[in-house]
């Protein structure tokens, strides 16, 4: 296993607070909410596991063997699982989770009746493929057909947030709203202007 301090990116003599802060920042970064239905979700899960282990190891060492658990409820990395009444849909969900999109798509087209779940699953497949426009349309349809389904509404609201949701490192939270066009020009004109460097 890698050195737990380097996993969290802090030095050996960092204070407890610094360790905790670094841990929280990383946990925010790899939080499952940021990787819902993302083809790279498994990589994020591994990272999350790694930082959880590192944090546990450090707290254990520092408290003399006492086994603490990760703070803030970041302990488990579980994709929220929803069950499906229809066995065909359950199989399709499974295929999507495994990343076998072609097979999932094929099975979905064999289902005759299109209900809310059909559109939701069709949207999930599109989302995974990166076909965001189609994903959005399908999620909208799913929510229209079953407005009370939290799963569909949640998927739609993630997309409606655009770049405002998800993780951004400190310092990259947008603050450029009040910029006029001349400033924009100067800012993007990245090599010339601004004098010699």
């Amino acid at each position: 296993m890698r050195d737990p301090y380097s996993v969290l990116g802090v030095s050996q003599n960092a204070s407890d607070d610094e360790v905790k802060k670094a841990y929280r920042e990383l946990a925010r970064k790899y939080h499952p909410d940021n990787y819902q239905n993302n083809p790279l979700a498994d990589l994020a899960e591994e990272k999350m596991k790694e930082i959880n282990e590192a944090y546990d190891t450090i707290t254990k060492q520092r408290s003399g063997g006492y086994s603490g658990s990760s703070p803030g409820g970041y302990g488990g990395y579980q994709q929220r699982s929803y069950s499906s009444g229809d066995p065909a849909y359950a199989r399709i969900r499974n295929l999507i989770n495994m990343g076998d999109l072609n097979q999932a798509e094929q099975l979905l087209y064999e289902v005759g009746q299109k209900n809310g779940e059909w559109y939701f699953l069709s949207g999930s497949i599109a989302y995974r493929k990166g076909w965001m426009d189609e994903a959005m349309q399908n999620y909208v349809r799913a929510v229209q057909m079953e407005p009370n389904n939290m799963e569909y509404r949640q998927a739609l609201s993630v997309m409606q947030r655009g770049t405002m949701g998800g993780y951004r490192p400190a310092g990259y939270t947008t603050g450029m709203d009040a910029m006029d066009c001349c400033t924009t020009m100067m800012c993007l004109n990245c090599l010339c202007g601004g004098g010699r460097c």
């Binding site: 940021n34 990589l43 994020a44 990166g130 997309m159 770049t163 993780y167």
Partner: peptide, 20 residues
Amino acid sequence: GALRLTMDNSLAQMGAALQL
């Protein structure tokens, strides 16, 4: 509005990938 949103969704996916 719609085009921007779908482009923003791609930007969000890029950010998530970059972090990994």
